[in-house]
Amino acid sequence: MTTVFYIAAAVALVSTFLVVTRLNAVHALLYLIVSLLSVALIFFLLGAHFAAAFEVIVYAGAIMVLFVFVIMMLNLGPLAVGQERQWVRPHTWIGPSILVCILGAELVWVLSRGGSKAAAVAEVTPKEVGIALFGPYLMGVEMASMLLLAGLVGAYHLGRRTSSGAAVNRRRGND
């Protein structure tokens, strides 16, 4: 099981290095998703199944989708189609695909060995996490909800100001 951990750690380091060095934002996003998935596998190996599921759903799912949306919004225009065709060229996918295949093979191997039970890893179950979250950490949950509300209001405010700001710019242009 430690070998699996070291391979996943190597995949995480390689893909993170490639994120930092890519010039194209979409290529960097692909590698970042690989990096997050490998960290999720490491969480699984550490016995933190709940955190692993969260990593895949929230990080590799929701937050990366936000990035993809913004990158797509920044590239509206006649060049966008050609650019998109360039982004999804097959050889772009080779690197991330190889790394993901390594991770997938590891996951299949671990599951075929009986999951983390075979590794004698003490699992911290989601139940324990939930009891801790809504017991001693209840104030933290409330603060997190306030933080999310502040993020929501802030993003909404910034988004609103863009439309009115554009209107101001247009007016300036007409004058």
């Binding site: 929230v58 929701a62 937050i63 913004v70 919004m73 993020g151 802030g154 993003a155 100001r161």
Partner: peptide
């Protein structure tokens, strides 16, 4: 994770601005 989600939403709104 919560903090990262809030940070990235505001950050990306700032990027668009």
């Amino acid at each position: 994770l919560t903090m990262a989600a809030a940070e990235v939403s505001v950050g990306l709104a700032l990027v668009l601005l």
